[in-house]
Design a protein around this nucleic acid. Structure first.
Lengths: 273, 273
DNA sequence: TATAATAATGACTAGTCGGTCACGTGTCAA
DNA sequence: TTGACACGTGACCGACTAGTCATTATTATA
């Protein structure tokens, strides 16, 4: 295991136990048996550690759920998989999920909370798309309410199940949530939320200029010439009159191997495919 | 306004902004224009301030919802009031609710998080009772799932509404949640949670010995002889073979004026009436 | 007005924090 | 054997924390 991974593992363990704010760098380095100095060889600050942990897990959570869902054959099978996988992933990353639920992340880093919101909106968009696949146009106008309610149900069940330390069956969990979702999607009439621009304000405000800016700042973190070239071409293609999706997807694939591009590759793949 | 109240107001403002952990006593005293020493004349520690804020608000939230609901005429009117009032109270105490949602309270104080759980279970019990009133025995076996789901829906809607800073109509909010709750209560079949002892483990483990212990420690905070006498008689009555509810309720009423007894009076009134 | 009692202050203590850096230590090629 | 270099260390720094207490200001009483 690399030193970086060692630090992340120790940090996750301690963060989940006592919270991010309350865990000192000293405690992390003690826990994994390295010196404080060695920590700063891997991360240039505690903030950077927190940031990289969140990036890492957010990516995995969205990606794993998305991938599993896409393997479902029928829409209703996909919905079932969505719940099973969400459950599985969240309980797998229980420590991390716990941290995110509890911690006042805004106190740690302003940029961080914005990034988390992007991830949340991204996963909301995926869920919305899935709901349309399963239930069709009958949910038109109520899709945002459904997303909010489903998130609430999942969150609340998770909270209870984690808190009670009971054994539990993810199949039954999914079955139950499919039943509730179907009931609400097919029988409910009232919708409260009607402004998609409010619901996805962060994703929609993420313009090509912002993407360019983020790409250029990420570019400085790599020396790989393929990646640097890909970034330059990507920016040019995005800014051109008629961006060609195939080229963008291809260039994004070049960046996918390097973890530091995770967020932006996920985003671009969603937008341009 | 008393100095104590001044401190609480400033603290709430700053806690909501930056989190409990990240707000120093110095910042609180600066914000309300008193010296650090003066703070420690009102609270013997920062923990005590946090504790008293949580006690205060938890009491108010449960009490206000409970009272409003009890004024409803029909069961279905009560359910509507439940949602309106929960919404109103939570948005009134938005700052505080925000703190509780975000903060890793366990890092602040172990006793505190236990107390919060008691409050949550108390409010869950109230909701369960209301659900039986409205929907009758048809929900038997599914009541815990319903409570969890309703909490999740409310929490999730609140989170979204607070986050988006949109104007919103608490009447429509309640109407929508009544519709969803009714759908789930009357049409849903599957239940995941079946162990009330797990669901209310804290309230059920709160034995008369614990109550006695808590009462005796609270007794030291008052010099009022009526209150001291009431506590002694209350303990005797609780420990007797056949506790007489009327006497307990009467004695509890004697303690209700003093805020430091808030939690325990709320609990005893629920248990013995 | 003089004295006692109370209220409020802020410099201070003892400790934690994130972050730095001069100093080993071990491993190579020359 | 020597010097160069990367890796790793932990004492140390300045900034911050919760909480204390001798001192001063204010008020009440005589």
């Amino acid at each position: 295991m690399t030193r970086k991974q060692l630090i992340i593992d120790s940090a996750l363990h301690l963060f989940a136990e006592k919270g991010i704010e309350a865990t000192s760098v000293q405690q992390i380095t003690d826990h994994c048996g390295i010196s404080k100095g060695a920590f700063y060889l891997s991360f240039k600050s505690k903030d950077e550690l927190v940031f990289s942990i969140i990036e890492h897990f957010m990516n995995n959570i969205i990606r794993e759920v998305d991938q599993a869902v896409s393997e479902g054959q029928t829409p209703s099978e996909k919905l079932h998989i969505y719940f099973v996988q969400t459950m599985k992933v969240l309980s797998q990353y229980a420590g991390f999920a716990d941290i995110l639920m509890k911690e006042n992340v805004s106190a740690i880093n302003k940029a961080l909370i914005e990034r988390i919101h992007y991830y949340v909106e991204l996963s909301n968009k995926n869920l919305e798309k899935l709901l349309f696949e399963v239930f069709g146009d009958q949910i038109e106008g109520r899709q945002y309410d459904l997303v909010v309610i489903i998130n609430g149900m999942v969150q609340s069940y998770m909270q209870y199940i984690f808190g009670s330390c009971q054994p539990f069956d993810s199949g039954k969990f999914a079955e139950s949530l499919v039943e509730k979702t179907t009931l609400l999607a097919t029988k409910s009439k009232i919708a409260l939320l009607q402004h998609p621009s409010q619901f996805y304000k962060r994703i929609e405000n993420y313009s090509i200029d912002h993407i360019t800016e983020d790409l250029l700042s990420l570019q400085q973190q790599t020396t790989n010439s393929l990646e640097i070239d890909s970034i330059q071409l990507l920016i040019a293609e995005l800014k051109s009159e008629n961006p060609r999706n195939a080229i963008i997807i291809g260039l994004v694939a070049n960046l996918e191997k390097n973890e530091c591009f995770n967020w932006i590759t996920l985003y671009l793949k969603k937008q341009y495919s």
